[in-house]
Amino acid sequence: MTKHDTSLIGLGLYTPAEAARLIKVPAAKLTRWLKGHGSGNRTYPPLWHGQVDLHDDKLYLGFLDLVQSRMASAFIAAGLSPQKVRRALILARELIEHDHPFATSRFRTDGRTLLLEALGEDEDDRPLVDLFKRGQYVMHKVIEPSLKGIDFDTDIAARWWPRGRASDIVLDPARQFGQPIIESVGIPTSILSAAAEAEGSVTRAARLFRVSTAAVQRAVDFEHGLAA
Rank of each mutant, 00 (worst) to 15 (best):
160 W>L: 10
137 Y>K: 06
136 Q>A: 13
194 A>R: 15
152 F>W: 05
118 A>D: 10
164 G>A: 06
131 L>C: 08
115 L>V: 07
135 G>E: 12
149 G>V: 06
164 G>W: 01
111 G>D: 00
147 L>M: 14
150 I>V: 14
103 A>S: 15
101 P>C: 04
178 G>N: 04
140 H>G: 14
161 W>D: 12
134 R>T: 13
183 E>P: 01
176 Q>Y: 03
177 F>L: 15
121 E>L: 12
154 T>I: 05
192 L>C: 14
171 L>V: 01
181 I>E: 00
164 G>L: 01
169 I>N: 02
157 A>G: 07
171 L>Q: 03
129 V>D: 01
115 L>Q: 01
137 Y>A: 06
185 V>R: 05
139 M>G: 07
172 D>R: 01
130 D>Q: 14
131 L>R: 14
145 P>L: 02
177 F>R: 14
167 S>I: 05
143 I>V: 15
138 V>N: 00
119 L>M: 11
133 K>C: 08
146 S>Q: 11
117 E>S: 14
103 A>K: 06
106 R>H: 13
119 L>K: 03
179 Q>M: 10
131 L>A: 13
151 D>E: 15
158 A>M: 04
179 Q>G: 03
191 I>H: 07
187 I>A: 02
152 F>G: 01
161 W>Y: 15
156 I>A: 05
118 A>N: 07
133 K>L: 13
182 I>Q: 10
173 P>L: 02
196 A>T: 10
195 A>V: 07
190 S>H: 13
133 K>G: 15
150 I>W: 02
147 L>N: 09
168 D>G: 03
166 A>P: 05
103 A>N: 09
145 P>S: 02
155 D>C: 06
196 A>N: 08
177 F>C: 02
158 A>Q: 10
135 G>I: 11
169 I>K: 00
107 F>L: 09
107 F>Y: 12
193 S>N: 10
105 S>V: 03
165 R>V: 14
151 D>V: 13
175 R>Y: 08
163 R>C: 10
135 G>M: 05
153 D>S: 12
196 A>R: 07
121 E>A: 10
156 I>F: 03
108 R>I: 04
126 R>M: 14
157 A>T: 00
187 I>F: 10
179 Q>Y: 03
185 V>M: 00
192 L>D: 08
156 I>G: 01
184 S>V: 05
147 L>K: 05
192 L>R: 10
137 Y>M: 05
127 P>Q: 12
183 E>C: 06
150 I>K: 01
169 I>F: 04
169 I>R: 02
164 G>I: 00
177 F>N: 12
108 R>V: 10
121 E>T: 14
161 W>P: 11
142 V>N: 00
192 L>F: 09
152 F>D: 02
195 A>G: 11
153 D>E: 14
135 G>N: 10
177 F>D: 06
123 E>P: 01
188 P>V: 09
151 D>Q: 08
115 L>I: 15
107 F>G: 02
184 S>W: 09
102 F>N: 02
132 F>E: 05
140 H>D: 10
167 S>D: 09
181 I>A: 09
135 G>F: 06
192 L>A: 11
180 P>A: 09
115 L>G: 04
153 D>Q: 09
193 S>E: 09
178 G>W: 01
165 R>N: 08
175 R>N: 08
134 R>A: 13
186 G>Q: 07
